[in-house]
Computed example of a mutant assay.
Amino acid sequence: METTKDIAIGKSFNNWIIINKLGEGGFGSVYKCQNTIDPTQFAALKIFCQDNDALTETKIIRKLEHNEGVINMIECGYSDFGYIMVMDIHGINLKVFKEKLPEHHFTQDTSLRLLLRMIKILQFIHKEGIVHCDIKPSNFVVKGKEDIVLIDFGIAEYYQDQFGNKTNRKEHRGFRGTLQYASVNAHLGKPVSRTDDLVSAFFIYFENILGTLPWNSLTDSPQQICEKKIQFKESGIYKYTQIQMPVINSFQTIIENVDATEPSYTFIMNKLSSLFVEQHIPLIPIFNEKELSILPEEEDYCQYRTVPSTPKNCKLKKINQIDEAQSVESQNTTSYLDDLFKTMKEQLPSFHPLPKISSFVSKLKSNDFNLPFGL
């Protein structure tokens, strides 16, 4: 049985053929794939390292997939190279999108619309008894330039069962999530709650509008990041004039009621909705024309991450740049050999490449291997 690391471009799963790698992490690898029956259909194919991780995530996504704000699963199952999940493929994530903008931040209106959409998505998954546990910009991808979709439920959990009873979740389990966007509770090792998901969404809003967060430069010090977040939520937030008071009030409300049975979704939505009315902000589209002009075509920028950005995973590559470099080298070499054979045929009409050379070139063109030497 092959492992995830052995997966090669061109292999198939059911009616899907792998085209290229999009990302990898502690839970597995994600590839872009193409439907062999309908070549116009593309998808994201995730190969898990552990079957237990796969079964948990696929079960959660299957429960949530009827909502437009959650990634849709096309199919899943076992293969010769591990458990596989095929999902819809969308555009760049919000982190990459923000970095592409000239000012490296979204406008106030766009930031507010994104926050409202994120809260609606979270309200839905929370209603289904699930907490995401890793809300961050790179886990929201752009869908058709008009919406966003939440992806990567690798560490998501059930906080209650189908009957509304709380599930047994281990206390003081250690940090889980992404340092920059995790709540203070997550830093303390407590089970992530619905409120903690909402806090992370507000952190995304603050970063979208400010361009950065006060603790983003402290990536190597979880303790200092936690202390900065405590200062920020207690008083530091008020010094940023770009953040409107209804947003601050909403944020303060959820952190003050962290142990509430039900987060104050209605209060938050009402506060944010009042801003749209008072300032004549349109609810749609989410992104303005200037921001949309930054986006390339979807098939050119699809990116997925399959693991939270915890310290132990911070060195993982998002994109397999070595494979890309080797692919370019192979294409250049193939072109060189084609030109060489063409020239030889013109100068020597009786010239025919030896069978072994022809076989070598065929394999090279199909990317079965890369040359161990330069030409």
Score class of each variant (00 low, 15 high):
M1T: 04
E2Q: 01
T3N: 10
K5A: 12
K5W: 10
N14H: 11
W16Y: 09
I19D: 05
L22W: 09
E24V: 01
G25S: 02
C33D: 10
Q34W: 00
T40I: 09
F42C: 09
A43L: 03
T56R: 14
K63I: 13
K63A: 07
K63F: 15
E75N: 02
Y78E: 11
G82I: 05
Y83P: 06
M85S: 07
I89Y: 04
I89V: 09
L94F: 04
V96H: 14
E99D: 03
L101R: 03
P102R: 01
H105N: 09
H105V: 09
F106Y: 12
D109W: 02
I125V: 04
I130F: 05
V131S: 08
K143E: 12
I148H: 10
I151Y: 14
D152I: 14
G154Q: 13
A156F: 04
A156L: 05
E157D: 14
Q160S: 02
Q162D: 11
Q162K: 06
R169S: 05
K170P: 10
E171T: 02
R176H: 13
G177D: 08
A182Q: 11
L188D: 13
V192D: 13
S193E: 09
S193M: 06
S193L: 05
A201V: 07
F202Q: 01
F203D: 06
F203V: 02
F206H: 03
E207K: 05
N208D: 13
N208E: 04
G211I: 00
L213W: 09
L218K: 04
P222K: 00
C226S: 00
Q231D: 00
Q231S: 00
F232Q: 00
K233T: 06
Q242T: 06
S250C: 15
F251P: 12
V258K: 06
S274D: 14
F276L: 12
P282N: 05
L292I: 15
P296K: 02
E298N: 00
D300Y: 08
P308G: 05
K312S: 06
N313D: 08
K317V: 10
N320A: 02
V328K: 14
S330A: 00
S330V: 00
Q331A: 08
T333Q: 01
L337A: 00
D339Q: 03
Q347R: 03
L348S: 06
K356Y: 10
K365R: 00
